[in-house]
């Protein structure tokens, strides 16, 4: 049996769709239609990944996430609608692993689940990471693109390292700023945009249409998965 996925969503149609999609991909499917039921299932069913809708009738999705995080580090992928970027950001900041905006495709969701499971499986640091043509060796502080060495400034290196260690997963602006500058200050958000732009010029074939560092509008960046 594959990994067990808990879907917490009050919409029957969505649960039905996900049930078909997930079981077809070999996952074990568990569902809950409310926050209360979801929390109960999270404890009893012990899922490997939780898919959590932010708009539950009985409780705010963020509150459900907070309660789960009190005792579990299980990957949580949140579902939300357009125009609620600040909700998504705060959910990611309190420990959600990734998000999807409704409407979404099942294949997108599968990709997110696979990334979440992979990160769950190997939390230990690998010295070498390869994503597409991008090669990064943390032990040698070496970065290559299509076999060619590229030179990065220390900040560019730190940004890319955080993104590539989370390859396929969204990393929020705040997480990036915190990890690179050690600060929460909003004033760094301008610098972040500028460093990302420079980084793209060095690693992207066409910086106008980036293939590695993808922007998640209003939320952060994601290093493309390349499965």
């Amino acid at each position: 049996m594959g990994a067990k996925i808990l879907v917490i969503d009050d919409e029957l149609e969505i649960r039905r769709l996900l049930k078909v999609g997930l079981t077809a991909h070999g996952f074990d499917f568990v569902e809950a239609a409310s926050a209360k039921e979801g929390l109960y299932q999270a404890v009893t069913a012990r899922p490997d990944v939780i898919i959590l809708d932010m708009g539950l009738p009985d409780q705010d999705g963020a509150e459900v996430l907070r309660q789960i995080r009190e005792w579990s580090q299980v990957p949580v992928i949140i579902l939300s609608v357009r125009g609620q970027e600040h909700h998504k950001v705060s959910a990611l900041d309190i420990g959600a692993d990734d998000y999807l905006t409704k409407p979404f495709s099942v294949s997108e969701l599968m990709a997110r689940i696979r990334v979440a499971l992979r990160h769950q499986a190997n939390l230990k640091d690998e010295p070498v990471v390869e994503v597409g043509e991008l090669y990064m060796d943390f032990s040698k502080r070496q970065v290559k693109i299509a076999g060619d060495d590229i030179h990065l400034t220390p900040i560019e290196y730190d940004l890319l390292k955080l993104l590539i260690s989370n390859a396929g997963k969204v990393v929020t602006h705040r997480q990036l700023i915190h990890s690179v500058w050690g600060s929460e200050g909003q004033e760094y958000s301008q610098y972040l945009r500028i460093y990302i732009s420079q980084l793209r010029k060095k690693i992207e074939k066409d910086p106008n249409q980036p293939a590695y560092i993808l922007t998640e509008p209003g939320i952060g960046y994601r290093l493309a998965g390349f499965e």
């Binding site: 958000s189 301008q190 945009r193 990302i196 732009s197 910086p207 106008n208 922007t215 509008p217 209003g218």
Partner: peptide
């Protein structure tokens, strides 16, 4: 909801 943004980035997205 204004934030410092890179036009090139928006076009890419």
């Amino acid at each position: 909801n204004r934030e410092w943004s890179d036009l090139q980035d928006i076009i890419g997205v």
